[in-house]
């Protein structure tokens, strides 16, 4: 049980990293992080990007659920 959820958690974590990297990076580094009054150029996201968002949110929820379930399982085991 614990092993299964650990593997699932690793899977979800790796998927999250890959999916987030697939997104286009927003924001131009440090310079507009603090100060530097440029406003970001908008540009609506494409359909592909929107689907990617959906998958990422789905994976993120799975990732969160895995963390909580695994924590509870480990707590039950260690007492």
């Amino acid at each position: 049980m614990i092993l299964g959820f650990s593997i699932a958690l690793i899977f979800f974590s790796v998927m999250m990293v890959v999916l987030v990297l697939l997104h286009k990076g927003k924001g131009g580094g440090l310079s507009d992080m603090f100060g530097g009054g440029m406003s970001s150029t908008g540009g609506g996201s494409a359909v592909a990007e929107r689907n990617l968002d959906r998958i990422t949110i789905f994976m993120g929820v799975g990732w969160f659920a895995c963390i909580i379930i695994l924590s509870l399982l480990l707590k039950a085991k260690n007492g």
Binding site: L9, S13, M16, V17, V20, G25, K26, G27, S40, G60
Partner: peptide
């Protein structure tokens, strides 16, 4: 598992920041 989870957590934060930059107000990070 702990290391991978924490690294994924950082990536999720990065994504949250980019979401704010994209659809919210101000610079996400």
């Amino acid at each position: 598992t702990m290391v991978i989870t924490m690294s994924a957590g950082t990536v999720v934060i990065m994504w949250l920041g980019e979401l704010i930059t994209d659809r919210g107000i101000g610079n996400g990070m």
